[in-house]
Simulated assay, not measured.
Amino acid sequence: MGEYNEKKETCGTICLKYLLFTFNFFFWLAGLAVMAVGIWTLVQKSDYISLLPSSMYAATAYILVIAGAVVMVTGFLGCCATFKERKSLLKVYFILLLCIFILEILAGILAYIYYQQLNDELKQSLKNTMTMKYKQPGEDRVTNAVDKLQQEFKCCGSNNSQDWRESVWIKSPESEGRLVPDSCCKTVTTRCGLREHPSNIYRVEGGCITKLETFIRSHLLIIGAVGLGIGFVQVFGMIFTCCLYKSLKSEPY
């Protein structure tokens, strides 16, 4: 009867080992995906981050990059701990899983919070950013972001093209009499902003605020879903780790 129990425990341990190894393989791939989403957000969409007064959007992306990198290292460590059956490595692995879980849940929560307050923040800040910083010394990043925003989303001004009448640059001699920046034009040419007729410039209901808000909200949903989704999967990894640890602890040395 004792031999049967010992074999049964050994069989269970083997099953747990391969189950945890399989989990770590897919966990490593998930870490790669998480890090890719974070890097993509920071690299491809970094221009728009300069238009936001809050750093929360960037913070969620940085958290995903860090979490993704740690996930990949942790996945490798988990494989080593599983096959070497080292309880000390399993402890470290479990602690790292817990830390990553907290990071990704934090990213999901931050994304959700910012999702809720985004509309008010954009209404309060985007118009001021566009009119006060566009084409001003030391504000090249904002200028490029505004030009890219208006061209990519086919919009003009924060709420509408009339917002540009309050622009510091439009009122200055440097604008050469433009009524809107050239990036408002449907076909961009030098000084095309001298004419603000609907046939020449973009006039979108809601202006660039609506376009930028929709864009950022969609990305926040992706960031939040990725963070919370991977975090949920990690719970199973922690359960498998605890089970394997207890199984190894009960085995004779």
Results as ranks from 00 to 15, higher is better:
149 L>F: 06
149 L>D: 06
152 E>H: 10
154 K>W: 14
154 K>E: 15
156 C>K: 02
156 C>S: 06
159 N>Y: 13
159 N>H: 13
162 Q>R: 15
164 W>Q: 06
165 R>T: 15
166 E>G: 10
170 I>T: 09
170 I>D: 04
171 K>S: 15
171 K>Y: 10
172 S>E: 09
173 P>H: 09
174 E>T: 11
175 S>D: 10
175 S>N: 10
177 G>D: 09
178 R>K: 15
179 L>T: 12
180 V>N: 10
181 P>A: 05
183 S>W: 01
184 C>S: 02
185 C>W: 05
187 T>S: 13
187 T>V: 15
189 T>A: 06
190 T>L: 07
191 R>C: 04
191 R>V: 07
191 R>P: 04
191 R>W: 08
192 C>P: 09
195 R>V: 13
199 S>A: 10
201 I>A: 07
201 I>P: 01
203 R>S: 11
204 V>I: 13
204 V>C: 14
205 E>A: 15
205 E>P: 14
206 G>I: 08
206 G>F: 09
208 C>L: 08
210 T>A: 13
212 L>W: 04
212 L>H: 01
213 E>R: 14
214 T>D: 12
214 T>I: 15
216 I>D: 02
218 S>K: 08
219 H>M: 06
219 H>C: 07
219 H>I: 03
219 H>D: 08
220 L>H: 00
220 L>Q: 06
221 L>V: 08
224 G>C: 00
226 V>D: 03
227 G>K: 00
228 L>S: 05
228 L>P: 00
228 L>Q: 03
228 L>W: 01
232 F>N: 13
232 F>L: 12
233 V>W: 09
234 Q>A: 03
234 Q>K: 08
234 Q>M: 08
235 V>K: 00
237 G>T: 01
238 M>S: 00
240 F>G: 00
243 C>L: 05
243 C>K: 02
243 C>S: 06
245 Y>N: 08
246 K>G: 12
246 K>L: 07
246 K>C: 11
